[in-house]
Amino acid sequence: MSDTTITDPGVSEPDPDDGATLDEATDGTTLVDEVIPTATDGSRSDDGLDHLGLAHHTSTGLSNTKLGMWLFLGSECLMFGGLIATYMLYRNRQGDAIGPDQLWDIPFTSASSFCLLMSSLTMVLAVSAAKRHDDRNTRLWLITTASLGGLFVAGQVYEFTTFYREGLGYTTSLFGSSFYTLTGFHGVHVSVGIMMLMALMFMLSRNKVAGDKAETVEMIGLYWHFVDIVWIIIFTLVYLIPA
């Protein structure tokens, strides 16, 4: 919890949309001067600012880690956008080979989607526990998240195996190639996320997380939620909308 004074009372409020203003103020003080309280001995404390995204004395006044993560996620949108657009173009290009209508098992894919969706809830509860410095519950929610992610990946492996046995190989048709590439890339992202969750749990239990623990959990949480939102799109566009 922060008791940081953020704005001076009695002065007109700025437009909220200009929130990231980093310019020097009229009296020469900077954003950092304004938001980081100065103790009587002249020292500053960053405690309690991390949750605002205002950590340590960065040039922007924001956490560089968080800034980097959002930038990474923004660029990931472009990568998955390319894969999704390619699939949409080729979804009906299977020729005489097996197509989506003969392959999809919507109840099964819905169940694995449900697992991934619920893992987003457990992840946000882990972040919430980490912000309360509740290490035990943080680890509990992290292991639940990793388990749900594991179920999703297991479902995807089963699905791929079934499709292959039914005649859809990676090079069978343009539809097959684009489908396996899109969902496979997503599956790899989920698997990387599971590894990150496991590593984080290990480090938390050994107290080896450097810096702000809550921010570290939050960063992995952002990545995890991102793979969830990508699946929300894939589930609708690939499985639910008829070819």
């Binding site: 990231a20 995204g53 800034l67 959002w70 930038l71 923004g74 949108c77 956008g81 390319g82 657009a85």
Partner: peptide
């Protein structure tokens, strides 16, 4: 912070537009 929103939405809407 609004800057995080802008970073993410820039990537998202650029991807939407391009594709």
């Amino acid at each position: 912070n609004v800057l995080f929103k802008r970073l993410f939405y820039s990537g998202l809407f650029l991807a939407l537009f391009v594709y």
